[in-house]
Design a protein around this nucleic acid. Structure first.
Lengths: 203, 203
DNA sequence: ACCGTTTTCGAATCTGCGTTAGAGAAGACC
DNA sequence: GGTCTTCTCTAACGCAGATTCGAAAACGGT
């Protein structure tokens, strides 16, 4: 039996390789999409040969499935943590905070988020089931934010909350398609987008 | 030499098959994405066997390339026709009209637009070159719309016009991911989105 | 230094799909 | 009805990429 520290180190080495594979898969998925992501690309990026993947995952689909699920869960966790960290705030302020949370996790914090955003709608059924359930819960949080806004009378009358929600999420998600981390700080983007969202929804 | 009418009929039959293939390809591309689109699916949808494709196109990539190029050109043509058809209008009214044009071509008029929107950013270089050039020109039109708005002092101060443009186009493009033609009329969506865009940008 | 376990790799297999080849059907014109 | 052209199909090829296998390497404990 290994001593505590070595066991920890051993476990962590294996765990770290596994993690490298997941991270690599998330990156490739975010760039090439589900059908375009080859195991060789993922393996390369994780500094391994392709067959090594099968030591950690039963199949390509299982690996991808885990990336998707992790990504969706991370987005929701980040959003909910952000909202809970808010001192009592107006519905609109909560939405503004959610906008920032979404953009940061999408563009700065997590390749997994990018993978989710760009692939959620083009995955084959078996792979997407668990992930889509998680995405649905994420959407539920936003549905709540919009409902609160409307209940407070702060949503422009006539606007369908469902359309408003997809409008905002669409604008946010699309940033993954064009935002270039190289040029310009994220802060400026966040501020502009918050301003536009606020005015797009306000009564 | 065939008589006029039969020549026309013959030509049109061949042309129609070719067209069916392009249409089928546009639909499949819009659903599965570039890497996920198989020739068999396209052929099936066009009521042909896969090898028949090669009578009309040199390769899969050429077929797809033409779909992309056609799609991008169609979007731009539709947008420009719409704008030209406008009696002198304020910059904001022009943008509102552009919003409707974009949504209609994306959701109602053309599978090609959907194909472009969902694939423009994940195509391999060789296929995307011509299409992306066309997309760039489409973006230029929008860039002009935003510039005019700003010049007229009607863009909220502080907003980066480039960010504003991507924000709006993102919200519009994302509709391809969730809008279900089955339920609800497009008119309602258009009205809501126009309202949100207007307020998002207004000074 | 030696042994068992964990982890990785090179080589081989299997499968799906783009593509080619060549023969046959469907017309068009005489 | 014959023949030439246009179009489409069936069968087969070749490659790329997922997966499997068995052996080697790396590692931890003694």
């Amino acid at each position: 039996m290994p001593s505590e520290s070595t066991a920890a180190r051993a476990a962590s080495k294996s765990a770290r390789t596994r993690q490298r594979l997941l991270d690599a898969a998330a990156e490739v998925l975010g760039e090439k999409g589900f059908a375009g992501s080859r195991l060789v690309d993922i393996a390369d990026r994780a500094q391994v040969q392709a067959p090594a993947i099968y030591y950690y995952f039963p199949s390509r689909e299982d690996l991808i499935e885990e990336v998707m699920h992790t990504g969706a869960a991370a987005m929701r966790a980040h959003l909910q943590r952000t909202l809970e960290g808010l001192s009592p705030a107006s519905p609109m302020d909560r939405i503004t905070a959610a906008v920032e949370a979404h953009l940061r996790v999408e563009l700065e914090l997590s390749h997994y988020a990018r993978a989710i955003i760009r692939n959620a709608n083009q995955l084959p059924e078996p792979v997407s089931r668990r992930a889509l359930a998680e995405v649905a819960r994420y959407n539920d949080v936003w549905r709540g934010l919009l409902a609160d806004l409307q209940a407070a009378g702060a949503l422009r009358p006539g606007l369908d909350p469902a359309v408003a929600r997809m409008f905002v999420l669409g604008a946010l998600n699309w940033a993954a398609e064009w935002w270039d981390p190289e040029r310009g700080a994220l802060d400026a983007l966040v501020a502009d987008v918050q301003s536009m969202v606020r005015h797009a929804l306000s009564a």
